[in-house]
Amino acid sequence: MCGIVGLFMKTPRYRPELGRLTEVMLHEMRERGPDSAGFAVYDGDRDDVSRLTLLAEGHDPDWSATAAALEAALGAGVDVRVTHDHAVFETSGDGRAARQWVIDNAPGVDVLSYGRRIELYKSVGDPALVAERYDLASRQGTHAIAHTRMATESAITTNGSHPFVTGADTCLVHNGSLSNHNQLRRQLIAEGESFQTENDTEVAAGYVSWRLRSGDTIDEALVRGLADLDGFYTFAIGVENGFAILRDPIACKPAVVAETDDWVAMSSEYRAIARLPDVGDAEIFEPEPSRIYSWSLAA
């Protein structure tokens, strides 16, 4: 199973309610994925900073000390916002250098996301509690993707939860299972990707990450993925300015899309969409197999 939701605000009208509406949608997908949940929110108000979402699972690090050491290394200020076991570091310094510094110098801390606009939270447990713990409802922004997991291919852990980061400001959620993930993982390790879990979706994320790093656009990466990823999938991919969805050629895993003048929503099931504002005016359709759909903010 697993449940997916994505919500993209085309106009500013509902952006202050992005988190609240995403939570409404996520709540409807609890039964599809009671094991763990996660969400990525893209906030549009600060393009002048780089931000990292960090996770310290099972221990309580001294985030201030970590940030101070990072400040010294970067020669730039670092602002810290802690939410439970996650922390967002924002800096005007070099974001890639900051990410690498954390990986090299902060033991027990995982970098869940990096980029200019994305923040990413995930945890094991009831999706409703995960949403509450990380204060999804109060978050604003242009778009969000979220996931509820019913684990099939690997253990129920925070690192095995979705979304998975695929690069700067990109992440991926998945409903389905990949059958060639072990082989693909070995190939991607040879290409320089690294993996933290035995999870199949992390391999799909690593695959997209590798293609983006190799110069593909997100659409090109997904077209190539149709040939290389074997299995069942509906993917939702968050990117800096929007999101994309793709279903495998058999398309057993469900997906429904609704679009109004103000928003585009996708989900595994219509009931997640049924409670959105103006849904009575929405154009509703089922995405076709093997076809990439994407929505983005006007440049």
Binding site: Y270, R271, I273, A274, R275
Partner: peptide, 10 residues
């Protein structure tokens, strides 16, 4: 019988 507000229920 009439059913209203199904809201995508299964």
């Amino acid at each position: 019988f009439t059913i209203v507000n199904p809201q995508g229920a299964h």
